[in-house]
C-alpha cells in the first residue's frame, strides 16, 4: 500500500523542471582540483571518489580507462560501481611482480581472482563492467587493444574475463552502487576516464 501511494505521489509531485531535466546546480563543481584529469573528492587516506556516476542506479554497463605509474612497491586500486563511501563495488588492485609484469587482483562480493600481464612502469588498461547482468560481467584489456569479444580467455585479445566456464566467477552477483574511485598516491595517477560506453556490447 505504501508503494502505491508513493507512485501516485511521485507522479503528482513531478515538476516541470523534473520533466525537462533542467539544471539544479548539482553538476556545478566550482574550482576544484583534478586527479588524472578528472574532478575528485578525498574520502580517506589516498582514497578518492571521482566525478561520474553510473546511470540507472548502477544497473547498467560502463567502461573505465586507467593510466597510472606502478613502481616496485606501489599499489593502485580502482573501485567501480560502489556505494558513496566506495564500499560494495568491484575492486581491482594492481601491484608489480617484476619489471615487466603486473598483477591485477579482482574482488567482488567475496569472490577473488587475479591475472598477471605484461606492462612497463606505465600501466594502461580499460575495464568493462556490465553490472546489468545477473552476475556482473567484467573484462579488462590493454588500452592499445585489440579488443576481442567475450570469448577471449588469455592475452590474445583481453587480459581478464569473468565469463568463462569452469571459473569461480558466475555466482558473484552485482556491484552495489553507481560511484567510482581510486586508492593510490596522487603522483602515480596519469589519466582517468569514466564512466564511458562499454568497449564490448552484448
Amino acid at each position: 500500500m505504501k508503494k502505491i501511494l508513493l507512485i501516485l505521489t511521485l507522479f503528482s509531485f513531478v515538476s516541470c523542471s523534473d520533466l525537462t531535466g533542467e539544471s539544479t546546480g548539482a553538476n556545478n563543481l566550482g574550482l576544484g582540483g583534478l586527479l588524472g584529469n578528472i574532478s575528485f573528492v578525498e574520502v580517506g587516506s589516498n582514497l578518492y571518489r571521482l566525478e561520474g556516476t553510473a546511470t540507472n542506479g548502477g544497473d547498467t554497463a560502463h567502461s573505465y580507462n586507467l593510466d597510472f605509474k606502478l613502481g616496485d612497491s606501489d599499489e593502485f586500486s580502482v573501485l567501480l560501481f560502489t556505494r558513496e563511501d566506495l564500499s560494495g563495488g568491484l575492486e581491482v588492485k594492481f601491484t608489480r611482480v617484476d619489471a615487466n609484469t603486473v598483477k591485477a587482483k579482482f574482488s567482488l562480493n567475496g569472490t577473488e581472482d587475479f591475472v598477471n600481464f605484461e606492462s612497463s612502469e606505465n600501466v594502461s588498461v580499460v575495464i568493462d563492467i556490465h553490472n546489468d547482468e545477473n552476475d556482473a560481467h567484467i573484462i579488462m584489456w590493454d588500452q592499445t587493444g585489440p579488443f576481442g569479444d567475450e570469448e577471449c580467455m588469455d592475452d590474445e585479445t583481453c587480459l581478464f574475463n569473468t565469463d568463462h566456464f569452469g571459473t569461480k566467477w558466475g555466482s558473484h552477483g552485482k556491484a552495489a552502487g553507481s560511484f567510482w574511485g581510486v586508492k593510490s598516491i596522487k603522483e602515480n595517477i596519469i589519466k582517468l576516464e569514466g564512466p564511458n560506453e562499454t568497449v564490448f556490447n552484448h
Binding site: 511521485l10 523542471s17 523534473d18 520533466l19 525537462t20 531535466g21 533542467e22 539544471s23 539544479t24 546546480g25 548539482a26 553538476n27 556545478n28 563543481l29 576544484g32 574532478s39 575528485f40 573528492v41 571518489r49 571521482l50 566525478e51 561520474g52 556516476t53 546511470t55 540507472n56 542506479g57 558513496e84 553507481s178 560511484f179 567510482w180
Partner: peptide, 20 residues
C-alpha cells in the same frame, strides 16, 4: 516513453542530478 533515475547523485557535490 519516459524514464527517470530518481536517485542519481553527483559524486562530487553529493546533490541529486535531474535527469529524464
Amino acid at each position: 516513453d519516459g524514464y527517470k533515475d530518481l536517485s542519481k547523485k553527483n559524486s562530487i557535490t553529493g546533490k541529486k542530478q535531474n535527469n529524464i
